Amino acid sequence: MILVIARKELRSLFATPMGWLILAIFQAIAGTYYSLSFNQYFEIMQSAQWQVQRIGITQFMAEGVFGVATVLMLFVVPLVTMKLISEERKNQTMTFLMSAPLSMSELILGKLLGIISYLSLLIFSMTLMIVLMRPLAEIDLPYLLTHALGLWLLMVASSALGLYVSCLTATPILAAFCSLVALAACLLLDKFFTDNQQALFYDFSLMQHYRQFASGMLNSFDILFFVLFATFFVLLSIRRLHADRLYD
């Protein structure tokens, strides 16, 4: 049942102009940064006089392409998650879902899986762009895949947050705005506590854990953080729908 819901959610994204428009804009911006980073790399390397001043093309390209992707995700995730549950409430079809022979866990996980599948296409396409440079340059695949994994985990955690916010309102636009604010806060928590890296909220910053992957470090603690972050908001979403089923 989870896969059925996920396929339905994925088809609904590609059945609307918004799904294709987001994909096209994302690819256009990522492709532009890809081209700019490629040209900029060789310009910088030609002016580097010492070997220590030189960096690998994989790191340079990934920082440019994945860096802009991180910013784009801040806007893309709220847009694709805002309708997951709030539109069901708005169209008054939530009652049918509540009475359907499926658990709230299946509903939430199915919708989340559909969104993750859609966003994974964006990450895969960016990773593929850099991999396709292999005939022209030596690509550090372990570093690239580690960086891509970090961005994917960041996307999963952000989608879980957006899904929960969508469960709280019947207005998709309001859900998108609240998701944007909440996601921005979670990404930038470490910026508010730069003077005290031991502060509790410093370790809850999504960007702080993502940076470890961006530097090529595969840390089990950072993976666990993203998994627990996503699980927390998935459980909150399930609990919210259970409450609606009980009191409706």
Rank of each mutant, 00 (worst) to 15 (best):
M126F: 02
L132A: 07
T171A: 10
S103M: 07
L107R: 07
L36E: 15
C178P: 02
I115Q: 09
V77Y: 03
S12G: 14
I123P: 01
L136N: 09
L228D: 05
L206S: 01
R245T: 05
M155S: 12
F38L: 15
I57F: 00
V65T: 00
L224I: 08
F225R: 05
L153P: 00
I130N: 00
R11D: 12
L3M: 13
I238P: 03
E106R: 07
L218Y: 04
F38Q: 08
A137C: 09
L109C: 15
E138T: 10
L241R: 03
Q27D: 07
A15V: 08
I85N: 04
A30D: 10
S237G: 07
L10T: 04
I5T: 11
Q53A: 10
Y164M: 11
S120Q: 07
Y247A: 15
P135Q: 04
Q53W: 12
T16G: 12
H147C: 11
G114H: 08
F60C: 06
T146A: 08
I238W: 03
V71Y: 08
Y202Q: 03
I57C: 03
G216K: 00
I223P: 10
L228Q: 07
M104N: 13
V52I: 14
M61W: 02
S158V: 04
P17M: 07
F75K: 04
W152D: 02
A160Q: 00
E106Y: 10
T58L: 02
A157M: 03
I123T: 15
P78W: 01
G67Y: 03
G31C: 06
Q197N: 11
T58A: 05
L107M: 13
V65W: 00
F14V: 07
R239T: 13
G216S: 01
